[in-house]
Nucleic acid binder design. Structure first.
Length: 622
DNA sequence: TGGGGTCAG
DNA sequence: ACTTCTGACCCCA
């Protein structure tokens, strides 16, 4: 069987990005770390830090309730996602720069799948039996770049835990899966440390042989830790996946990634025997919870039965097979390669209700503006300065003279070009009352066979995108205004021909249907990284000393379950790390001293916010 | 290609 | 009171 190591890493503490938002505010203002902090979008708490959780706050809680539960809570507004998106991009770029190949897949703002197979394979070949001190090479071309580790033991927690599990005395090299997972566990630990030391963000990592298992493994030891899901390697062959089965069986069916609310509900209904004539139904441990194990062992359960359970919906063709695979811990999906450009960009806002054209127009305008800004940041890059551009000769001469000291040309004067052109513009709305609905009371609606697909009330109209949206000459406001009048308002009227009474509660404006520009490089992410770091090797070399210092010793720290994540390694911070990562239009204007300084111990350039953590780290060993 | 659905965080 | 602000992929016509 082929080894497919996926390393899944949640960038902040918890695997959801709840805490990611809170971490971003804490990074801006470290004083917040000691306080209960909640991030607000409209009337709800979308996220809160651990201090707030300790005091009883939860995500997706009403602001009112949160204030009642914890009057001292500090509330910050998080409706503008720009910061989160930028930080997320930066952390993502950093990980991509370390991992070989381009299989680095973002899931939301706060999670990344990494396929580290080739790194593991490469490092496997240097191992010799029973050597407890080795070097993990992070750069094929430079054996001095890497970190020390002990390849005879896992780094960090495993599932099953090593207390429950016989650690093999001798690991057969080099083809053993367990050995690969050991290496992956050390790499995961290294990546976590790098994220924390260099960027001030803690993360949780799951390590296994597929995206499915890596993701679920990541939930086991939640904040600021990692879990390696280990298959049995001493057991008999027929039960070779028993731990995986047990692991999967213990999950509630809806917790399995890929099984969402609808599918889980249908499967639960079937297993609980709601509409099944079979009365072979079993005693379920809890009334409400249906576990993967309950589903897997249900009489007759398999791909065909799942197909039947899910028949009638618009599901993918192989849905039964896929779900059955997930239930059995099988997931063959690959970690997706990095994308040059997103497939769509959308921006939306929600409201209590909008009922007049004027109100609608007033709300759409800023959405259009922001959308155009986003198109510029995400779909354009700086033009490569071509020697042949006659018109710009004067500028070019002045700006690009050799040996120009630290101040680069103003980014705003640089030429930009589109990496991709969206071809479609789309307006979506949601109303408080569904447009044409007859359902009076959803709670009384009996679930006979199919969910009546009640209330998923976003409706949309799209149109070809007007070409003026791509202009670099006209300013954003002018383009936005024209877009609203010529496209978006007409689209709105098509959506809502009625005179009034729409009770609009949400408006979304999107560009979709991207066509990559010819000549744009395949891997723009890689090029951005190249701009941010001189080269991968150089960056890594800068950190070489740190890496070696850390290797094994830190594993021991991390292995201890007794760490107080709140106090042990708190990071001081300054707000500017965004700008480290500020993409295409700004990067050439960076003056490093604005954002950080050189460490007086190792001389490495450290972003300002990470300096304290970095020095703390120097003080640990030796 | 347009409109909608489900999944994810 | 399944809420917020997204983004990816899938199906059907």
């Amino acid at each position: 069987m082929r080894f497919h190591a996926a390393l899944h890493s949640n960038l902040p503490h918890l695997s959801d990005y709840d805490c990611f938002y809170a971490s971003v505010f804490e990074a801006e203002n470290p004083a917040l770390k000691a306080l209960p902090l909640a991030v607000q979008q409209k009337q709800i708490v979308v996220t809160c830090n651990y201090e707030a959780r300790r005091r009883g706050l939860r995500k997706l809680q009403l602001i009112k309730e949160a204030k009642k539960t914890c009057p001292e809570v500090v509330i910050v507004l998080g409706e503008d996602l720009t910061k989160f998106r930028d930080i997320s991009k930066g952390l993502y770029s950093f990980l991509s720069s370390l991992v070989w190949g381009d299989q680095v897949e973002k899931l939301g703002f706060d999670e990344v799948f990494l396929d580290v197979t080739s790194m593991i394979e490469y490092n496997l070949q240097w191992l010799e039996p029973d050597i407890t001190n080795s070097v993990f090479q992070l750069d094929k071309d430079d054996f001095t770049v890497g970190f020390e580790y002990d390849p005879t033991v896992y780094c960090g927690p495993t599932y099953p835990s090593r207390d429950d599990h016989l650690q093999p005395e001798h690991i057969s090299l080099p083809l053993d899966l367990g050995q690969r997972l050991i290496l992956a566990s050390h790499l995961g630990n290294y990546l976590r440390k790098q994220l924390e030391e260099r960027h001030g963000y803690t993360s949780t990592v799951g390590i296994s042989t597929s995206k499915l298992l890596a993701k679920l493994a990541g939930n086991v030891h939640k904040p600021r830790n990692q879990t390696t899901l280990i298959p049995p390697f001493l057991n008999d062959t027929d039960q070779s996946d028993s731990y995986i089965i047990q692991f999967m069986d213990s999950h509630e069916i809806g917790k399995v990634p890929g099984i969402g609310f609808k599918i889980a509900s249908l499967i639960r209904a079937a297993v609980l025997g709601r509409e099944n004539d079979l009365e072979l139904y079993r005693e379920l441990r809890t009334c409400d919870q249906v576990t993967v194990g309950d589903v897997r062992t249900f009489p007759g359960m398999g791909p065909l039965m799942l197909d039947k359970i899910l028949s009638g919906g618009g599901w993918p063709k192989d849905i039964g097979t896929r779900i059955w695979g997930l239930i059995n811990g099988v997931d063959h999906s690959e970690v997706a390669a990095a994308r040059a450009t997103p497939t769509q960009i959308s921006i939306e806002d929600s409201f209590r209700q909008l009922d007049t054209l004027d109100a609608v127009r007033k709300e759409i305008l800023p959405l259009a503006r922001n959308l155009i800004r986003r198109m510029h940041t995400d779909l354009t890059e700086e033009e490569e300065e071509m020697a042949g551009t006659d018109e710009e000769e004067a500028d070019t001469m002045r700006d690009d003279t050799q040996d120009q000291p630290a101040v680069p040309p103003q980014p705003s004067t640089r030429k930009r070009r589109w990496l991709a052109h969206p071809r479609t513009l789309r307006l979506s709305t949601r109303s408080r009352i569904p447009p044409s609905s007859t359902d009076t009371n959803p709670s009384t609606a009996q679930p006979p066979d199919r969910t009546p697909t009640l209330y998923n009330n976003r409706i949309s109209r799209s149109c070809p995108i007007p070409q003026f949206i791509f202009s670099f000459k006209d300013n954003v406001d002018a383009i936005a205004e024209r877009l609203v009048h010529e496209c978006l308002m007409p689209a709105f009227l098509k959506l809502h021909p009625e005179k009034s009474g729409w009770r609009i509660s949400l408006i979304n404006v999107a560009v979709t249907n991207m066509v990559d520009s010819a000549g744009s490089t395949k891997n723009s992410a890689g090029r951005d990284i190249g701009k941010m770091f001189r080269s991968q090797s150089r960056v890594l070399r800068e950190w070489k000393v740190a890496d070696v210092d850390n290797g094994v010793g830190d594993c021991q720290v991390d292995n201890s379950d007794a760490i107080k994540s709140d106090t042990a390694l708190e990071l001081e911070d300054d707000s500017m790390e965004n700008d480290m990562w500020e993409h295409e239009e700004v990067d050439s204007s960076m003056d490093n001293s604005t954002y950080g300084a050189e460490c007086h111990i190792c001389g490495t350039y450290i972003p300002h916010f990470a300096l304290k953590a970095h020095e703390t780290y120097h003080s640990i060993p030796d």
